[in-house]
Design a protein around this nucleic acid. Structure first.
Lengths: 153, 153
DNA sequence: CCTCAACTTCAACTCAACTTGACGTCGAGG
DNA sequence: CCTCGACGTCAAGTTGAGTTGAAGTTGAGG
């Protein structure tokens, strides 16, 4: 097995070295150290990083990814089973994300159709259920409102 | 026209008062002040806030929303034209977002189908174009990688 | 008139996912 | 042996969308 420096991994994965070090602190990837304390990554790290970026695109946070990747070996090719488990999970994630957006779009389309400027009954303004989970961060309040926007001007 | 206190708007829109003040500093909503310097919002603010939350769900940032809402009157019902312009814009936003996710899902499905553990040619790991724009914040590096993950272990 | 919840401002904190900078060390080529 | 770029650590900064707290003011009900 040959080992890659952090710079090589960065170049080949398109991820900055700072990000790789950051991933390592989060336990997403792992390295050996040389005598001189430099990181050396196993080749399989390239795949791991690719998986991380792909996972982020699917909307997963780094901690969720850490969860998911913890079942994959750090230093060798994952088995087909590993890979299928992962991709199935991501696929269903994508499926539900798509479903949510489609629902939102359809509601919006109806809104345009009905021209309901009152918004009193318009579904889009009375969310009902968690169509949230789009975008990270301080989105935690979005979707937990219970009060509706009734009796509009 | 009767005016609402910040607390009333918060209760009826399901948005915290702190968020409402924050929106006001960003120019998303506007208020009159009482003699005692308290905010009083026009009723139309309820709709504005609803639009803001809906817009966020569609993936718009507050500054983009400020842009969009600046053409709507702060204190009265928007015209049908206003409303149609807005919802058309959001619909196309949703459409492209959906398209991106669907593309990603299809690629992933192919990956599972082909069982390509090598990831050498797998489309999902060689993104190619900006399917990013999921989630806010320091996502600015995602999608500007040019190097591919070739020659896997 | 008094009280108390609801309001005011302002600064500081949160969170995720990193980046940037300072300052110091490693190691391959000449 | 020297140099210079690539590496190391650690602390602090960034962005977006707010929240939290302190300290003080307002205003409706009793």
């Amino acid at each position: 097995m040959d080992w890659l420096t952090i710079g090589e991994v960065a170049r080949r994965s398109g991820v900055a070295t700072s990000a790789l070090r950051f991933y390592e602190t989060k336990g997403l990837i792992a390295s050996q150290r040389t005598d001189g304390n430099q990181r050396r990554y196993p080749r399989a790290t390239l795949r791991r990083v690719a998986l991380i970026r792909a996972g982020q695109e699917v909307g997963l946070s780094l901690s969720e990814l850490a969860e998911a990747l913890q079942h994959l070996p750090h230093d060798k090719t994952p088995t087909r089973i590993d890979w299928e488990r992962l991709s199935q999970a991501w696929r269903s994630r994508l499926d539900s994300q798509i479903a949510e957006l489609v629902a939102l779009r359809d509601e919006l389309t109806d809104c345009i159709g009905c021209g309901c400027l009152s918004l009193t009954s318009c579904a889009i303004f009375n969310p009902g259920d968690a169509a949230s989970r789009l975008g990270t961060g301080p989105r935690y309040l979005l979707g937990d409102s219970r009060d509706s926007v009734a009796a509009d001007s």
